[in-house]
Design a protein around this nucleic acid. Structure first.
Lengths: 248, 248
DNA sequence: CGCAGAATTGATACATCTCAAGCTGGGTGG
DNA sequence: CCACCCAGCTTGAGATGTATCAATTCTGCG
């Protein structure tokens, strides 16, 4: 089963679907050529662990297609998801030898990896990469802080609504047609993964989803296919006043 | 009351107490001279708001002395602290016009401010500043993610222990003598501020502190002066296995 | 001295967890 | 093709941790 279907693994940067959003977004042709030298693609199946916390990491890279999670685990097994990695998101930390979190593919996934040492060297000579990475890291920090509010102060129902809003918004931003109509998407997470993201149990997640469905805030086809008839209504349920701020 | 006692507000960078830890840590003499051009000091009293969320920000800067908090507030008044700013920590985001959070001084505080536009310009020509800022931002991201685990998965008692461990460790790292003996420090936060950091109510904070005191995990002199007789014991109570990892 | 903000403590309410029992849908082997 | 199976999910009933509401008690300060 290892040879699952996947995109062409010898993709040229110029044709890359995340060319304009990833860490390489600002690079010129010359810099892209340099990156081509040190890059390679790796594909993972849904459920596979990409990196184990504490392991030595000899690469950094970007998610090209698919979705992964960043999770932290306590000795007694309690786990907290600390990040959701979508296409163009960056994995790994320049200057650090060991991985701080588990990275797990929740769908089939393709990563564009750079050998760590050459990438670090290149960062020193290529301000555009360092600048872009700073910008992305600042965005992630904002997202983490927004999530702290969700974890610390929101009710279970608000947490679910917040998660659906985030997934829906991100999903919409990846699609071409940002139609003003209904928002429709597939949940990329199991109930258990949602619980790990929200600091809840999977039973509470299930109950609150049922409740939102009963109240007409969401519609479900199967367990995963979600329709949001009224996005503003969902935002109200999430406890958000405005339409979500500027940060993706 | 505005003219409270404060350090010399015409400090030279070379004599700055955070010279080796702040965003300017890697700058050479020449770069420091440039920074001197665009920098100015501002002092605040305990309780003063330094920045209001949503306000236009025309500066970025570093905390020189004192402690500030970064908080987010929902319409209905629920608040969540999303960061604790200690000396050398950076405030503001290059490239963003509006403040995303409230910044409040919890003690008397001095900030070294840089006018935003000149600072942004300088970042483009001064890789050492951009590199240092990236490094600091990555550290903050790690801290935020560690805090997500605290907020999402720890019990009230573990949350208090985690907070005391963090404050104790940071405090120790600022002192010269990292004596192996007892850890002693003053809490820089009210019970309410601790509650806002931990996603609890102030009553629960108070109860858990009393409980930790009863059980001999901590000793209290007054409401704020804390002694930790056995730091490993505190870490056990926090649910942390190792001695806290490498990140400050 | 006595006030005001901060903190503690108590009694009760309630949201979420825990434990447990079924349900559902898609895949597999007989 | 059907029956079974299993992971993922839903639902229920009761336990529990934390919030809420309400008094007191500290502590520093004018």
């Amino acid at each position: 089963m290892l040879g699952n279907s996947h995109p062409d693994l010898s993709l040229q940067c110029g044709d890359c679907p995340i060319r304009h959003r990833a860490v390489c977004a600002r690079c010129d042709e010359d810099e892209l050529d340099q990156l081509e030298e040190i890059k390679y693609y790796r594909s993972f199946e849904a459920g596979q662990t990409i990196v184990w916390s504490g392991d030595r990491m000899d690469f950094v890279g970007s998610v090209v297609t698919g979705i992964a999670t960043l999770t932290q685990t306590m000795e007694d097994g309690r786990t907290q998801m600390v990040g959701l990695l979508l296409p163009s998101d960056f994995v790994g930390r320049p200057g650090r030898a060991m991985a701080a979190y588990d990275v797990v593919a929740t769908t089939d996934l393709v990563m564009c990896c750079f050998r760590k040492k050459p990438f670090e060297d290149m960062m020193l000579h290529t301000p555009r990469i360092a600048q872009r990475l700073l910008e992305m890291t600042l965005d992630e920090l904002d997202a983490a802080r927004e999530w702290m509010l969700v974890l610390g102060r929101k009710t279970a129902r608000e947490k679910i609504a917040s998660l659906l809003a985030i997934i829906g918004r991100r999903d919409a931003s990846l699609k071409v047609s940002a139609g003003a109509g209904q928002m429709v998407f597939d949940l990329p997470l199991t109930r258990e993964a949602m619980a790990d993201y929200l600091g809840l149990t999977l039973e509470t997640v299930s109950r609150q989803i049922s409740s939102l469905k009963r109240d007409g805030v969401i519609e479900l086809a199967g367990k995963r296919h979600v329709t949001i008839p009224d996005f503003d209504r969902l935002l109200e349920e999430a406890g958000d006043d405005n339409d979500g701020g500027l940060v993706a």
